[in-house]
């Protein structure tokens, strides 16, 4: 009973957040709606008993990505976040058609081909077990991921830094 109520509330929050995030004219409102979506999804993960993933979702997406997006908006758009130009792209109609088509294609196998739903098993996912898995069979993946993150860090800094101005053009303070 609890689970059903929680599922419906959380899924409504997630879908609502996602819809507002992609359609809101004001970008800062959009970011906060996106964060609501992330929070709803984190709740769904918790409902699926993936508590560590839920925590990481909050930590990475809400704590880090959200702040990053806010900063990017403040650096690129105006501080108010308002987008007063035309916000809808030229190909919006075909975009919607493709979206609807993808939705139907995604749903058909989900409804038709999957085995009939089983009763949920009670499982006990421990964070310790996850750690052992990361350190033993998946250690190479973890290392590659670390390398990727370092490369992304350096790449992001270089890309955002832009071309350094020559010394002569620096205004004398």
């Amino acid at each position: 009973m609890n689970e059903v109520v929680a599922f419906w509330i959380l899924s409504v929050i997630a879908v609502f957040g996602a819809l507002v995030a992609v359609r809101k004219r004001n970008l800062i409102h959009g970011v906060f709606a996106l964060l609501v979506f992330f929070a709803g999804l984190s709740g769904l993960f918790l409902l699926l008993l993936a508590e560590f993933i839920a925590a990481v979702q909050v930590l990475v997406y809400i704590g880090a990505v959200g702040i990053l997006l806010l900063f990017a908006i403040m650096l690129t758009e105006r501080v108010t976040g308002d987008d007063d130009r035309r916000v809808t792209s030229r190909g919006w109609f075909w975009g919607l058609v493709v979206t609807a088509a993808v939705f139907v294609v995604l749903l058909l196998p989900a409804i038709q081909q999957l085995p009939p739903p089983k009763a949920a098993q009670t499982i006990d996912p421990s964070v310790k077990e996850l750690g052992h898995k990361l350190m033993n069979p998946y250690v190479v993946t973890l290392e590659v991921l670390a390398l990727l993150l370092t490369a992304a860090l350096i790449g992001a800094v270089t890309a955002a830094q832009g071309v350094r101005m020559p010394k002569e053009e620096d205004s004398p303070e």
């Binding site: 997630a14 879908v15 996602a18 819809l19 995030a21 992609v22 359609r23 979506f37 999804l41 130009r85 035309r86 916000v87 809808t88 792209s89 190909g91 919006w92 075909w94 975009g95 919607l96 493709v98 979206t99 609807a100 993808v102 939705f103 995604l106």
Partner: peptide, 13 residues
């Protein structure tokens, strides 16, 4: 949710 994302990617500038 995936389709909401897709819609956003297709219809926003």
């Amino acid at each position: 949710l995936f389709c909401v994302g897709l819609m956003g990617a297709f219809t926003r500038r």
